[in-house]
C-alpha cells in the first residue's frame, strides 16, 4: 500500500513535478475493495507517473461510459447481440486499462453471457455493470477532488 504515497513525493516520481500536483499525502490508503474499484497506483504506473494524463483518462472514461451504456441498451433493444458483445468487449479492455478491475469483470461477464447465447437475462448483467460503474465513479470523483489544480 506504500505506492499510493510514492506518487505523492515528487522526488520519487519518474516524472518530477507532475505527481506533486496530486496531494495524495493526506489521501487515506485505499482498502482492498477500493483497489478493485480503481487502482490508482496501477493506473499511474501505466501512465508513467503522468498525473495530468491520469486525470484526462478518468475524465474521458466518465464521459464515454454513459455513451457505451446507451449504445448497449440500444443494441439490446434492436436485438443486436453481436453489437452488444462488441461494446462490452471494448468496455472490458478500457476498464482494465484504466485499472477498474470490478468494472472490467462486470463487462467481461456481460460479453461472455452475450456471446454464449445461453439466455436473455441481459438486464442482470447490465445492472451489475451499472452498479460497478457507480462505485467507480464515486472513487474516481474522490481521486479527482483530492487533487490540486495548477
Amino acid at each position: 500500500m506504500s505506492t499510493y504515497k510514492q506518487w505523492s513525493n515528487a522526488e520519487q516520481s519518474p516524472t518530477d513535478g507532475l505527481a506533486a500536483k496530486c496531494c495524495l499525502a493526506n489521501f487515506p490508503e485505499p482498502s482492498e475493495g477500493a483497489l478493485d474499484v480503481l487502482n490508482l497506483d496501477e493506473l499511474q504506473n501505466r501512465c508513467m507517473g503522468n498525473f495530468d494524463l491520469v486525470r484526462r483518462i478518468l475524465s474521458k472514461f466518465q464521459t464515454r461510459f454513459p455513451e457505451d451504456m446507451a449504445e448497449m441498451q440500444a443494441a439490446l433493444g434492436d436485438g443486436n447481440t453481436d453489437q452488444l458483445a462488441r461494446i462490452a468487449h471494448r468496455l472490458k479492455g478500457t476498464a482494465a486499462s484504466v485499472s477498474a478491475k470490478g468494472l472490467a469483470r462486470a463487462a467481461a461477464g456481460l460479453e461472455d453471457y452475450t456471446r454464449s447465447k445461453s439466455g436473455s437475462n441481459f438486464t442482470l448483467f447490465l445492472d451489475r455493470l451499472a452498479s460497478e460503474w457507480a462505485k467507480f465513479q464515486s472513487e474516481a470523483d474522490r481521486v479527482m477532488t483530492n487533487c490540486i489544480d495548477d
Binding site: R46, C47, M48, N50, L53, R56, I57, K60, F61, R64, R90, G93, T94, S97, V98
Partner: peptide
C-alpha cells in the same frame, strides 16, 4: 479505443 490509444502514445 481512444483511451487505450492515449495511454499507449504516452
Amino acid at each position: 479505443d481512444d483511451i487505450v490509444t492515449e495511454i499507449l502514445e504516452n
